[in-house]
Amino acid sequence: MSRTPKLLTPKDVHDATFNIRGFRRDAYDADQVDELLDNAEHTIRVLAHTAHNTWRNDGRSE
């Protein structure tokens, strides 16, 4: 993937649609599915990193 993934909102995931490829009505465009999954992975990594840093910093005195 050459472009930077975007952070997804719950609405992005809920509203995701994919074009149908080929003659089968259940065959989705693999590139579109891959892009959504790449963005979902990126979102989860950013949130996990943020949560980890927040948890780690909660023990520090100001």
Rank of each mutant, 00 (worst) to 15 (best):
S2F: 01
S2A: 15
S2T: 13
S2L: 11
R3H: 06
T4A: 14
T4C: 04
P5M: 01
P5K: 01
P5Q: 04
P5C: 04
P5V: 01
K6I: 13
L7R: 13
L7N: 10
L7A: 04
L8Q: 05
P10Q: 08
K11E: 15
K11F: 06
K11V: 10
V13Q: 02
V13R: 04
V13T: 03
V13M: 01
H14Q: 14
H14K: 15
H14C: 08
D15K: 05
D15T: 08
D15M: 02
T17G: 06
T17H: 12
T17L: 07
F18K: 05
F18T: 04
N19Q: 15
R21T: 08
F23K: 10
F23N: 07
R24H: 12
R24L: 12
D26H: 07
D26I: 06
D26G: 00
A27W: 11
A27N: 11
A27L: 13
A27V: 03
Y28L: 12
D29R: 08
A30E: 12
A30D: 07
A30H: 10
D31G: 10
Q32M: 02
Q32V: 02
V33A: 05
V33K: 05
D34G: 01
D34Y: 12
D34L: 14
E35W: 13
E35K: 15
L36I: 02
L36W: 00
L37M: 15
L37H: 11
D38M: 14
D38T: 14
N39P: 02
N39E: 09
A40E: 00
E41C: 04
E41W: 06
H42K: 01
H42G: 00
T43H: 05
T43S: 04
T43P: 00
I44L: 14
R45C: 05
R45Q: 13
R45P: 00
R45H: 08
L47S: 02
L47A: 13
A48M: 07
A48N: 09
A48V: 01
H49N: 13
H49P: 00
H49D: 15
H49K: 14
T50F: 05
A51I: 04
A51R: 10
A51H: 06
H52Q: 11
N53Y: 03
N53G: 00
N53S: 08
N53R: 11
N53L: 12
T54N: 08
T54D: 08
T54V: 09
T54E: 11
W55T: 15
W55P: 00
R56S: 13
R56N: 09
R56F: 09
N57K: 06
D58G: 03
D58H: 10
D58S: 14
G59T: 05
G59H: 10
R60S: 09
R60Q: 12
R60M: 11
S61D: 11
S61I: 13
S61N: 11
S61A: 11
S61V: 14
E62H: 12
E62Q: 13
